[in-house]
């Protein structure tokens, strides 16, 4: 195992993050604050409590998930797409490293960045609403797992993408709708029965539900099912990445 290489990639990627720290830090704080103003204060005041939790607090887990997922995907996809785009990928391909080490470096860095932003949003939220976290360890574990699995997914998108448009395509067309329709801002039980059934095909529902359970002890789906969903998603991403490197698809001609 070439741990020096993993470390080199990780440090290099994190330095990109620290170079734009202000942007990395300020933008999630501002967008979270805006969500609280709009959903929490303006709309939330007209919504009764959801299953015993004030609406402002209820949306916190969904908000965190929304940002963590999109940040993990965009950081990881950009991280591996950029070397492809400007040609520095030659160095990765000619170095004495294997696919696991490349993935550990890029995905590790992207997941760290997403985790950082998740924690920032959690902190910002705590300034707007009273937050209680019933299962803090489970909360942290869910957040870390989500960061990792979506960074893996982002890595796949970065390898697949052949231009910047494609890089944005999947996050925009698939992830954002799935997250918005995944119960981030409402409980699935508030939907008409047909939409409830449809919602259960949305993988994000399981993640948001599990994450919310760690805060309030209430969930749309059993917690075990949530864990199974995220484990399955992670395994699927790992499998695809393994295949990509084995075949050299889109990397080695």
């Amino acid at each position: 195992m070439n741990l020096q290489a993993v470390r080199a990639i990780y440090v290099f990627e994190m330095s990109r993050f620290f170079r734009t720290l202000l942007q990395s830090f300020v933008s999630p704080v501002i967008s979270t604050s805006l969500y609280f103003v709009v959903f929490g204060a303006a709309i939330g005041s007209r919504i009764e409590q959801v299953e015993g939790v004030s609406y402002g607090a209820f949306i916190v887990p969904g908000l965190i998930m929304l940002s963590v997922m999109t940040q993990a995907i965009s950081n990881a996809s950009f991280g591996i797409y950029f070397p492809k785009f400007i040609g520095t990928i030659y160095e990765l391909l000619s170095a004495p490293i294997n696919f696991l080490e490349i993935v550990m470096g890029y995905v590790g860095a992207a997941a760290t960045k997403a985790l950082f932003i998740g924690v920032v949003i959690l902190g910002t939220s705590a300034m707007f609403v009273d937050l209680t976290i019933q299962h803090p360890f489970a909360m942290l574990a869910f957040m870390v797992l989500t960061c990792l699995s979506f960074a893996l997914f982002g890595f796949i998108i970065g390898i697949w993408a052949q231009n910047f448009e494609q890089l944005q395509l999947i996050p925009l067309l698939i992830i954002t709708p799935l997250v918005f329709l995944g119960g981030s801002f409402y409980s699935i039980s508030m939907l008409p029965p047909v939409w409830q059934t449809i919602s259960f095909f949305n993988p994000v529902v399981y993640l948001v539900s599990g994450f919310r359970w760690s805060f309030f002890g209430l969930a749309d789906v059993p917690i075990g099912l949530s864990l199974l969903a995220i484990a399955g998603f992670t395994a699927m991403c790992l499998g695809i990445i393994w295949l990509i490197f084995k075949t050299g698809w889109r990397i080695r001609q």
Partner: peptide, 23 residues
Amino acid sequence: EINLEPFERVMNTVRFSRGLFGK
């Protein structure tokens, strides 16, 4: 081709290369 990350600093990018090769 001149394949380099435009925003990186010289020392950083050279240090990255060394680490990548396990040194």
